[in-house]
Design a binder for these strands. Sequence first.
RNA 1: GCGGGCGUAGUUCAAUGGUAGAACCCCAGCCUUCCAAGCUGGUUACGACAGUUCGAAUCUGUUCGCCCGCUCCA
Length: 512
Amino acid sequence: MKANDYEVTMDALVSLCKRRGFIFQTSEIYGGINGFWDYGPLGVEMKRNIKSCWWKSMTQLREDIVGLDSSIIMHPRVWEASGHVGNFKDPMLDCRETKGRYRADQIFVLKHKTDDAALMFAYHENAPAPAEKKIKKVAKGDAADYAEVALLDIPLDAYDKLVGPDTNEPGTLTEPRAFNLMFKTYVGPVEESSNVAYLRPETAQGIFAQFGNVLSTVRNKVPFGIAQIGKAFRNEINPRNYTFRSREFEQMELEFFIKPGTDAEQHEYWVAERLKWYEKVGLPEGRMHRDIHEGDALAHYASACTDILYDFPFGTQELEGIAARGNFDLTQHQNTSGKKMEYLDEETKERYIPHVVEPSAGVDRIALALLCEAYREEWINKETGEVTTAEVGAKRAPEGHEARTVLRFAPCIAPYKVAVLPLVKNKEALVGKAREIYEQLSKRWKVFYDQTGAIGRRYRRQDEIGTPLCVTVDFETIEDDNAVTIRDRDTMEQIRLPIAELEAYIANIVDF
RNA sequence: GCGGGCGUAGUUCAAUGGUAGAACCCCAGCCUUCCAAGCUGGUUACGACAGUUCGAAUCUGUUCGCCCGCUCCA
């Protein structure tokens, strides 16, 4: 069953996130800075819940995975070994005429074999046909007189004779510029090239670099995993779509080390495991997709890669990538550092560098997906109480109805688990009892106490921040039955429950 | 980074180059026995920096940010 058939608009969601304190633009008082976001009082709780559900499923509910917290700045050679220093940059060039942008290494050029003064024609890799046509039309020449050259081998002073891939005019291409997507800094007070360091662009390499230490301390046998949650930084060219692509973001990565040859089955296993987890935190199957990488889309060292995607309002986008990376990373570190990265199988006496399956998820993307999924506007018929999904974009509810905004979070994700509400605030005994319950429940969960305004308004406030349960203390509670009403966020129905049974009831609903 | 659009209160919107308003939200008080009731009062905004002008939310420039397209996404 889909949890939500309401199609949220990003405008409505962004507005609610700011209004209720989920997500703020960073440094907003100074005008903000592109690609960086802050999580407010509710957002930080929600994000912590996502991380602890993941951490619990990885390191607590199974004994073959241990945790790690490696530093953000590591030895620069880590990034040489991983290939990030060499490859983590894309030389790009623009066309002034068409406003197109191209990756320089994907553009090739047809150049006259003998006449250096002749026009040259650029084209997209493996698609020379348009350039060959232009040789006939524009240069009145014969394609046979031209040879293929990589764009990066064309000298800059010849760019005025170069015709771009999507134009017929020469001289419209800018020179290629390298974009290194790693944030650079200096270790120590002096800025010199010998102490350049990078903010990690992924948490994974911290795991690989500590593989040996972890292996020698925890006595785990292959297959086993190392899990890590932490910040990573990428100097994205163009952050977009709210928090979806940020320059500072948080990852939850597992490196699951396996025996070579079991890659395919382990990969398949982890894709299924992770999809189960997404279902559990509230992303239903109907809006989740798998993108199975094949052929050219696969990195050269990987034997399989499956992206897990979610239907965002701005398109179907990646939440997590699950890659079978062979032993590429450990081998690279072994070669670069000179330290052995081998595992000895005690039973078979085999020595090998383990292969790895890497489920790598973006916390911020999951948070955004959960917000999109949870957001819902409803219309409630004032007479019958019947609830219908609101029309998207409607300014107000139709005659005889009132509007309700509700975040239908899975209870394990909700920032607050319970709200405790005295029915009225000007009766001391009611308030006293409510405070007592609040303090009792607060020892176990994040609980909201609210005595302001009409009870209905307080319910709606909790709906809008996704609190799954409201506990209301009324006159019967103190005069009669020592019980409270519990109101459900989604159905708005109430049951009566003795205070003695309250904790067990709540735990059953909200704990992961 | 390029092109286009847009920046007024927490939100959604007003205001002819001349005192920045409203609704909702929020806060306080009164009232209130279960789904945004009512009454009274209150806080809060022209993204930033320059320029033109007697006077700028309004005109100009720059910049920052957001949205859309291109581009990119190991």
